[in-house]
Structure formats: structure tokens, C-alpha cells
Design a protein around this nucleic acid. Structure first.
Lengths: 226, 226
DNA sequence: CAAGCTATGGCACTGAGTGCCGCAAGTAAA
DNA sequence: TTTACTTGCGGCACTCAGTGCCATAGCTTG
């Protein structure tokens, strides 16, 4: 027995103790002792005490980076939406572990900060990818890239949190729906007019402008209702 | 001489040492010694070593919270856009200090994480405000609130970073412009047609349609470029 | 003058994280 | 089998951030 690799035994001990006494009340010595290992071994497997909770953020981040680098999508936003799916799937695969981590990060401010900082790295990656994809470092393109990255991450977090709280039974479908909503916020140029853009309609009529106005007003008001 | 309050002397000493040796190479003892004060006094004035760089995030956050609580705007998004202006103005007022902080956070990962975590608190505040304002905890309203909060914060960060890097001479005008862009992403129902709607433009000219087409085409294509 | 308040310094302690040394077990090569 | 090399582990001493307690100097208020 106890043939499990040290990494696993340490993580098990850590989560058990965090549940029992709380995160701050648990020392690394406690964890090592519970795992039947030395303190040194803990730090050889996890760089910090927090790392035992967030073991593979670096690995996942690298995975996403690769996915983006080798992605062939029509737009940057679609590529990023696709990549962020991977993140969600990773959490969902973790299952109960992800939920235990969520319970901890909800209670401990230091862990919440750590989580947010990790998310910030994804967002930065996305922002740079979108900005590169857009090519010219125009000022408005840069802002656009920032907004897009933020929107994708926000949508992902929204769905993820719902799933972590047990409010969602099909997070994959939800994230797809959320991404559709994000895409709708940023209509692709050429496919449909941009929100801030200009729609040019040329028409000609024999009627006077004053005759047209009432019906035009009705049209606009009806349109505003849905 | 050295009649300055301890807080100031400590901050001056800290920034000087961070510039000279770097953040990690500077201990709290070093800072206290340089300021001609005791270590205890440092921790009485700043809770942590990082706090000497981010002194009044809590105060600013409280200020924003108040501003939101007492705000009377037509929509939640406008209220939040207005509140985030305060944050930008705060940084701009700090002037050179904010730039020195930016130089540090750009180099030291721990400080960058801390900064991102702080921003996360603003975003959370905004998200909750918008969600409350929207009333019914509809699922789609919740996602919308998340997207709006993320967009406002992203736009703010974009302008702030430009200013911190010295790329902007009028950040206040830029943030207003950026906020207009954010507002355009989330058209208020009823106030203006939705992105999928129809823009009606009535005009009249003596010129033939074929004469107009080339210049119209140029207009549209230029518009797509920026 | 006495009492009390405030700002400070000193000191000892906990706990995270680092670095080094040494040891045991397994593996490959002689 | 013996030697040499590698790998995983434990122990130990150290630095440094952060906490808590106690003492003291200076100033105000009665």
C-alpha cells in the first residue's frame, strides 16, 4: 500500500487537510507528514503551497498556446473561442477536483487572487493572438482585440462558474451558446454592417419627404420593439 | 529635515531601492533602514511589502462602490462607465508614481499578479452592480452583465496602459471614446436599432447612381481598414 | 505633576521557500 | 559481482515576510 506516487499522495493529503482545517491553518509540514513524506519532497513536487491546488495551469496554458499557433479558423475570434473550449473541457474533465478547488478559492482570498491572475494570463494570450492576427497595430484594432479577449474569457468564466456551482448540466452546450453571443457582439466586417459602421441605402421616390416621415417613424418604432 | 511622515519616507525609500536593486532583491529591512525607521513601523504603515506599491487600492475600490451606489444614470452600463472614469483619473493624478509602478509590475511577475487581482475586484464589483441593476437573475442577463463588466474594464485597461506607456496625451478623451465603443457593443433596447437592425438613410442627389458608385465603394473599403 | 494616548523600536516567533549535503535503491556497464 | 551513475527522498540550516507582545519616548489633557 501507499505505492501511489508522491505527487498524488501529497495532493490527497493537502486537500484532505484543507477541507478539515482550512487552507491557512494547514502548513506544508502538516501536508508532508500526512502524506508520510518529507517537507523537501513537497517542494520538489510543487513549487509553492498554492501549486498543489493549481497543478497544471502552466501545462494547460502551453496547450492553448499550441492550439492557437496551429489553428486555422476564419477569424481570430473563432480561433480563440475554440481554444477556450479546451479550457472548459479541462475543468469538466477534472470533475469533482475542480469543484473542491472552487470551494477553496471561494473561501480563501489568496487563492481567489491566484486564480484570477491565472485567468489573466489566458486573457493576455488571447489578446496578443487577436492583435497579431489583426496585423496592423492600429489603435482601434488594439482596443478591439482587448475587448474581444475580455469577452471570450468572461463568457467562459460565466459558464464555468455555473458548472462549478452545479447550475449547469451541459456546460459544453452552454459555452457554445455563450460564444455565439460573443461573436454576435463583434460582427465580422463584410458579413454584416458593424455596429459603429455606416449603412448606406440609396433609394429614390416620387413622394415628398413629409409624406414619407410618418411611415418611416412607425417602421423605426416597431423595429425597436424586437 | 526628514520631518516627512513615516508613510512617505518609507514609500520613497522603497521605490528608490526597487529602482536600484529590483523588487525581489530588496528586503523590508532594507527599506526601513533606508528610511531611518524600524521594521515594525514599516508593517504598521503597510500590511505587506507589495502594499507599499499599491497603497490605496482599497480606498479607491470603496470610492467606486460609493459612486455606484449613489449614481443615477439611465443604464447600468453608463453608470459603470462613469465610475471607471474615476479609476483612470486616479491613476492620471498619480502621474509619475503610476508610471514607476507600471515599470515595476511589468518586470516582476508577483506584482503583475497582484495588479491583475486588484482589477478583478473592480470587475467583480461592476458585474454585481450590473446584474443587480438588471433585476431578474435571468441566465442571459447574468451572462450579459459579465460581458459588460469585462468590456468596461478591458477598455479602461487599454487606455490606462497606453497612457502609462506614454502613448497617450489625453487619456480622458480616449477613455470616453473607448466607452462609447463599449456602449455601441451593447445597444440599449429601444434607444437605437440593434446590430442586426436596419439603418435608414434618406438622401437625394442630382447625380446618377452610376456616377456615385465608385466613391461609395471607396468609402466602404476605407471604412473597413480602420 | 500625573494619567493617557500615539508613534515608534526591539524582539521573538511562525511559516513559506531555497540550497546543500547525504543516503538509499535501482540501473547500466565493467 | 562490483563499480559507477542516476533518481527520489530526508534532513538541516538559512533567508525573509508577516504577527504579536512589550517597552519607551514624546506629546497632550486633566
Amino acid at each position: 500500500m501507499s505505492k501511489l506516487p508522491a505527487r498524488i499522495r501529497l495532493a490527497d493529503a493537502a486537500f484532505a487537510l484543507f477541507d478539515e482545517r482550512g487552507y491557512e491553518q494547514t502548513t506544508v509540514d502538516d501536508i508532508a507528514e500526512r502524506a508520510g513524506l518529507g517537507r523537501t519532497t513537497f517542494f520538489r513536487n510543487y513549487r509553492t503551497k498554492e501549486d498543489v491546488i493549481f497543478p497544471d495551469h502552466d501545462r494547460l496554458l502551453a496547450l492553448i498556446r499550441d492550439r492557437l499557433a496551429t489553428s486555422s479558423h476564419s477569424t481570430a475570434l473563432v480561433a480563440v473561442s475554440d481554444a477556450v473550449r479546451l479550457v472548459l473541457l479541462h475543468y469538466v474533465d477534472e470533475g469533482d477536483l475542480a469543484r473542491r478547488r472552487y470551494a477553496l478559492t471561494s473561501k480563501v482570498a489568496a487563492l481567489r487572487d491566484r486564480e484570477i491572475a491565472s485567468v489573466g494570463r489566458y486573457q493576455r494570450l488571447f489578446r496578443e493572438f487577436i492583435a497579431d492576427w489583426m496585423g496592423g497595430p492600429t489603435e482601434s484594432a488594439s482596443l478591439r482585440a482587448e475587448l474581444m479577449a475580455a469577452a471570450v474569457v468572461a463568457a467562459h468564466n460565466h459558464v464555468l462558474r455555473r458548472w462549478l456551482r452545479g447550475e449547469s448540466s451541459d456546460p459544453v452546450a452552454e459555452v457554445d451558446e455563450a460564444m455565439r453571443e460573443v461573436l454576435a457582439l463583434f460582427p465580422a466586417p463584410g458579413s454584416s454592417p458593424e455596429p459603429g459602421g455606416t449603412t448606406v441605402v440609396a433609394f429614390r421616390t416620387a413622394q415628398d419627404i413629409d409624406t414619407l416621415l410618418p411611415s418611416l417613424r412607425r417602421l423605426v418604432e416597431d423595429g425597436a420593439e424586437h
